[in-house]
Computed example of a mutant assay.
Amino acid sequence: MIRDILRASVVLGLSASALMADGWKPDRPINIIVPWSAGGSTDQVTRVVAPILAEELGVSVVVVNQPGASGSLGTKSALDAPRDGYTWTANAIANNATYAVTGMLENTSIDDYEVYLHVANVPLVSVNPGSGYDDFGALLEAMRGQDVTVGTAGVNSSGGMALAAIQEAAGGEFGARMVSYDGGNPAVIAAVSGEVVATTQLAVEQTEMAKAGNLRPLAVLSDTNLVVEGLDPVPPITNWLPNMEIAPDYFGVFIPKGAPEEVYQTVNEIWERRIMTSPELQEYASSRGAVFAPSYGEEAIKRAMPVVIAEACARVHRGEAVLDPSEIGISCE
């Protein structure tokens, strides 16, 4: 039996090696455009994944930060680049899938990419420790009637969409005012410095500041506690807004379609063999408050559709859509 197991292991190893031998062999660096500033959630996790990809592909994988317009500027650069497999992008999948709905990018949808997901993130509502707010209930009451400033990376960012979702779930008058920055990290720093009262950016962008006592987490946009080593458990927002709909916010790397098929076949193999078992990515997720959830292809699309539908249809309900989601294959019925 041991001999059979060893023989099977050798065959599997040879199969993987044969696939790589026949697969894509890039001959120059690959750029991954992160359409947000350095230090934010997309930037963080892309810099964990990029060295693994570089090791497998045998060339440098360069993370290029190109922030602006809620991530649409850098995303457009990736879509406009030659479709030769050397320019990728990274983001929350709901962004790439819904830029056309908000009018930030025309004639684009998630069908323009091969999708490679790695983690799911959750937004976190935190305040400056000097703000006077000790629990989310008090902050929510203030948000309903006062000019509470909330730092986000823009209307189409995870933080911006989280704030809009809170407003929709709360109903009635809502006085919270969003202040936009070029990425999650600047938005979090604004809350730390007291430039804004609160932030609704992702937990992975906030946990280090929270551990240092520079932010006070009040609620996580989830239906369960957020548990991160070094922090007290953060209660779910459903404690205060029980009817709020929650969908995991998946992040990943996206390769525009149109490159040689061997590009995608090679990355598929690397994703399954290395990223889906990566201890580096698992450590990042557990230490920062993310969920380790790699997938690719049709499975990735299937997992991510709930958040894609939720974000697209929320734009319609709030009157922010300039394109009916059904025109890009998203049904709100």
Rank of each mutant, 00 (worst) to 15 (best):
I2Y: 11
L6S: 12
R7H: 08
R7W: 15
V11C: 10
V11F: 07
L12C: 13
L12I: 06
L12D: 14
G13W: 14
L14P: 06
A21R: 13
G23S: 04
R28K: 15
I32F: 11
V34D: 04
A38C: 09
G39S: 12
V48K: 00
V48F: 14
V49W: 08
I52V: 05
E55M: 08
E56Y: 04
V59L: 06
Q66C: 01
G68M: 04
A69V: 01
S70R: 13
S72N: 09
S72G: 12
K76G: 02
L79I: 02
D80N: 10
D84A: 09
A92C: 10
A97R: 11
V101Y: 06
V101H: 11
G103N: 08
M104G: 12
E106W: 11
E106K: 13
T108Q: 14
T108C: 01
T108Y: 04
S109C: 01
D111I: 13
V115H: 15
Y116N: 07
L117Y: 09
H118C: 06
H118R: 04
V122P: 04
P123S: 00
P123C: 09
G132F: 02
Y133H: 12
D134Y: 01
A138M: 00
L139S: 04
E141P: 02
A142D: 02
M143P: 14
D147T: 12
V148W: 15
V148Y: 15
T149D: 11
V150Q: 08
G151R: 03
G151I: 04
T152W: 10
V155H: 12
G159S: 15
M161G: 09
L163M: 15
A165G: 15
A165N: 14
A165Y: 12
A170L: 04
F174H: 08
A176D: 14
R177G: 07
V179W: 05
D182G: 05
G183K: 01
G184W: 01
G184C: 01
N185Y: 06
P186Q: 08
A198F: 06
T200L: 05
L202A: 08
V204C: 02
A212T: 03
N214D: 12
L215E: 00
R216H: 07
R216S: 08
L218N: 00
L218I: 07
L218M: 08
L221D: 03
S222V: 05
T224I: 11
N225Q: 05
L226Q: 07
V227Q: 05
V228W: 05
G230Q: 00
P235R: 02
P242S: 09
I246M: 11
P248F: 06
P248Q: 14
V253N: 01
F254D: 05
F254S: 00
I255W: 02
I255K: 08
K257S: 00
E261T: 09
E262P: 03
V263R: 07
Y264C: 04
T266Q: 07
E269R: 15
I270N: 06
W271M: 05
T277C: 06
S278H: 12
S278M: 08
P279D: 09
L281R: 03
A285P: 09
A285F: 07
A285N: 06
G289T: 10
G289W: 03
F292A: 10
A293L: 12
P294T: 00
S295K: 14
G297R: 03
I301E: 12
E311C: 01
A312P: 02
A312E: 06
C313R: 02
A314L: 13
H317Y: 14
A321Q: 08
V322G: 10
V322Y: 13
D324R: 13
I330T: 03
I330N: 06
